[in-house]
């Protein structure tokens, strides 16, 4: 069966619609005029204004710090969870474990955010910790949200490789822990990296959970963008969006080149 022209046209149209808003947004970000649709010359003024917007810059740095820490926690815990699900076939409470792990994956952000806020409030009342909400509570919430994603990536990677290689290592004189370090961990490494990147992105992108679990003085970038958007889009946001998109495209391209360079 040859490829149908209908499908090809549909795909091209779909991708065009997917990219048209982004293309317009990038174009607009270089427009000197404040008015979206009136082109009055190429300008980088909105980029300059963005870097001079201290509130925005503070929020961006806070978001990056939160994403770095929560992605790292999520990768550590999610890596263990993925390994457990793929390699420890039977352990006590496996069903409950898998259910708790998957819950943040399948529930809307709103429920996760609300539930965690209630937890932080209750914990503060009972133990005095965490004192007020802020970056720390957002980190805890984001890590919780991302563990399942990392676990999923790691589990599917390990499930696809099977246990034969570890058996070979043990056959060649490696005790289980050495086999884990020399064989399992290197096999998991690409999945851990992919999981970390996914967690980092999810944390950077989240507005709902952060809105619930953050407190005064800790406004993340998405929270700031959200509250700005409620009042209407600004040219600075166009510049920000274009910049983030460029960074994402660069990262994706780098990952692709890296994947091509070391093929096994």
């Amino acid at each position: 069966m040859t490829r149908s022209p209908f499908l090809t046209c549909w795909l091209i149209a779909g991708l065009t619609v997917l990219y048209l808003p982004i293309a317009l947004l990038i174009g607009t970000s270089f427009n000197a005029s404040r008015l979206t649709t009136q082109w009055s010359g190429f300008s980088l003024r909105w980029y300059v204004a963005m870097f001079h917007d201290t509130a925005l810059m503070d929020a961006a740095f806070l978001s990056i710090r939160i994403a770095l820490v929560s992605a790292t926690i999520a990768t550590l815990l999610g890596g263990i969870a993925g390994f457990a699900l793929a390699r420890l076939r039977r352990f006590h409470g496996r069903t409950l474990f898998a259910g708790l792990l998957a819950a943040p994956l399948v529930l809307p952000d709103l429920l996760i955010g609300l539930a965690l806020l209630l937890l932080f409030v209750a914990a503060e009342r009972l133990t005095g910790f965490p004192q007020n909400r802020g970056a720390l509570t957002v980190v805890l919430a984001h890590a919780t949200m991302c563990i399942a994603y990392v676990a999923l990536v790691v589990e599917s990677r390990l499930a696809s490789t099977g246990t034969t290689l570890e058996q070979v290592a043990m056959d060649l004189g490696a005790p289980p822990f050495t086999a884990f370090l020399r064989i399992t961990l290197p096999l998991m490494a690409p999945a851990l990296l992919a999981g970390w990147l996914l967690a980092f992105t999810l944390s950077l992108d989240d507005v709902v959970i952060a809105s619930f679990t953050s407190g005064p003085g800790a406004t993340t970038l998405p929270m700031l963008v959200f509250s700005t958007l409620r009042l209407g889009a600004t040219p600075i946001l166009n510049a920000l969006a274009s910049l983030v998109l460029a960074l994402a495209a660069g990262a994706l391209f780098a990952a692709w080149r890296l994947g091509r360079a070391r093929k096994y």
């Binding site: 889009a233 969006a241 983030v244 994402a248 994706l252």
Partner: peptide, 23 residues
Amino acid sequence: LPFWSGFLLRITAWIGILRDEGY
């Protein structure tokens, strides 16, 4: 790729199209 650009920012792009003075 667009998925990695942040979902609020994708909404921003649509606001630029749909708003009263939009494209």
